[in-house]
Amino acid sequence: MPGPAFDDEDGAGPRARPLLRTMFGDVLRRNRREQGRTLEDVARSAKISMPYLSEVERGRKEASSEVLAAVCDALRLELSDVLAEVGRDLAADRARRERVLRLDVALGRRAARPARRAGDTFCLAA
């Protein structure tokens, strides 16, 4: 199921916010890989199934606080450090999303939205 969508401040339409379970999974996977450990090794140490850990890492399962604590223990990480890393990733995601500037909004006018067709190109200025 997709995450909630919120209207952009400029009224351009909905934008998806990242799901917490996805962000947690990304951080856990990144740390596991940095340690050179396998899903099987970490799952065994955390006393959870390897398929379940895979689903958690891919953001498909909402892990309980007990499972998160067990995985953090298996990875020899403090839960507070994982939470801080998730927070940094969320802040970076927000900064990326806020860098997009619509020219019509910047110029103070609203352009009519033409129908989009396959092959249309868009210009982004930095």
Results as ranks from 00 to 15, higher is better:
Leu107Asp: 10
Arg117Ile: 02
Asp73Pro: 00
Asp81Gln: 12
Leu103Gly: 06
Arg76Val: 09
Leu77Asp: 12
Pro51Ser: 03
Ala111Trp: 06
Glu55Thr: 02
Gly36Phe: 10
Leu101Cys: 03
Arg76Gly: 00
Asp8Tyr: 00
Gly25Val: 07
Gly87Gln: 14
Leu79Met: 11
Arg32Glu: 11
Ala84Arg: 13
Leu101Ser: 14
Lys61Asn: 08
Gly3Gln: 08
Ala84Gly: 02
Arg60Ile: 07
Arg58Leu: 13
Pro114Ile: 09
Leu68Cys: 08
Gly25Ile: 01
Asn31Tyr: 04
Ala95Leu: 09
Pro114Thr: 14
Val100Thr: 11
Arg32Ile: 08
Lys47Ala: 13
Lys47Thr: 07
Asp10Arg: 10
Ser45Gly: 07
Val105Ala: 14
Ser65Thr: 15
Arg37Asn: 03
Arg116Phe: 14
Val27Gln: 12
Ala12Met: 06
Glu66Asp: 15
Arg21Phe: 01
Asp89Cys: 00
Thr121Lys: 07
Glu62Tyr: 11
Leu75Thr: 10
Val86Thr: 07
Val56Lys: 05
Arg29Cys: 11
Leu39Lys: 01
Gly59His: 03
Val82Arg: 01
Arg58Glu: 06
Ala92Glu: 15
Gly119Ile: 04
Glu9Cys: 01
Leu124Gly: 14
Arg21Ala: 10
Arg37Ile: 06
Ala46Asn: 05
Ala91Lys: 06
Ala5Ser: 11
Arg33Asp: 09
Ala70Glu: 08
Leu39Met: 02
Val86Gly: 07
Leu124Asp: 07
Phe6Glu: 03
Leu101Gly: 02
Arg21Ser: 04
Ala106Arg: 10
Glu85Asn: 03
Pro114Tyr: 09
Arg109Pro: 00
Ala70Ser: 14
Ala5Pro: 00
Ser54Trp: 08
Arg15Ala: 06
Leu77Ala: 06
Ala118Cys: 04
Asp93Ile: 06
Asp8Met: 00
Phe24Ala: 08
Leu101Ile: 13
Asp104Asn: 05
Arg33Val: 11
Pro114Cys: 04
Thr121Glu: 05
Glu78Leu: 13
Arg37Gly: 00
Arg94Gly: 04
Cys123Ile: 08
Arg99Asn: 03
Arg60Thr: 12
Arg94Leu: 15
Arg44Thr: 08
